[in-house]
């Protein structure tokens, strides 16, 4: 696994920008707390981003609940390896439900970047792609270059089965750019966007 860290060179901001560049109107994003939330905001503020400032370990399950509720929408959870590790069991729960409209994308830098870049399990023993496969997720991608990112961006829009992708990003810490912080405002905004995209009336 050491090898993975050495060849993990994708720039996280550029990777997020590539994934969301030609974002279809029905693609909703749940970025994991900390760095991925900053990345998503840096790629362009959007009503369809459910920015997380907490709830570590919950991103994949939030995505699952939304994906099950609205099968015609596309849902991409984009989170850090640390955040994913805290909710590793949720990959099993996702594997049991298998919604075709859900993708779980892990920006894997092998570290807990937000808290001072301490090495995480994915720098050592843990291979998240193997975990995802073992959880019954059939489409698993290991993305290490631009071509892979572009393929992944396409699949976020049209994969016909649940997708897991590990994106090997460099362990760096770009300047923070901070979106809306008020949880109620973030929630209400996303809910209105879902209602518009899916045609329901928010209560």
């Amino acid at each position: 696994m050491q090898a993975n860290v050495r060849i993990a060179t994708l720039d996280r901001r550029a990777a997020m920008a590539t994934l969301l560049a030609d974002r279809p109107a029905n693609l909703f994003v749940v970025p994991g707390l900390g760095s991925c939330t900053w990345d998503a905001f840096a790629a362009g503020d959007d009503d369809r981003n459910f920015y997380l400032w907490g709830a570590m370990g919950g991103a994949a399950m939030i995505g699952l609940g939304l994906a099950l509720a609205q099968p015609k929408l596309r849902v991409a959870v984009i989170t850090g390896d640390g955040e994913m590790l805290m909710g590793l069991g949720s990959l099993g729960t996702v594997g049991m439900q298998k919604p075709a409209n859900l993708a779980v994308v892990v920006f894997d830098n092998g570290h807990f970047g937000e808290t001072g870049m301490q090495a995480s399990h994915t720098s050592g023993a843990v291979d998240l792609c193997a975990v995802a496969r073992g959880c019954g997720i059939e489409r698993v991608m290991d993305v290490g270059d631009e071509a892979g990112l572009r393929e992944l961006a396409g699949l976020l829009a049209n994969s016909d089965r649940t997708l897991f992708a590990r994106v090997r990003i460099a362990a760096d810490d770009p300047p923070r750019v901070l979106p809306e912080k008020d949880g109620v405002a973030i929630k209400d905004r996303v809910r209105r966007a879902v209602a518009k995209a899916a045609g329901f009336t928010p209560a």
Binding site: V30, M61, T93, Q97, F200
Partner: peptide, 21 residues
């Protein structure tokens, strides 16, 4: 939705509500 731990169900409920369920 069978869960591996109960906190998953809290996050699931948040996602469901975002989706209008």
């Amino acid at each position: 939705v069978v869960l591996t731990t109960e906190e998953e169900g809290v996050a699931l409920a948040a996602g469901a509500w975002l989706g209008g369920q």
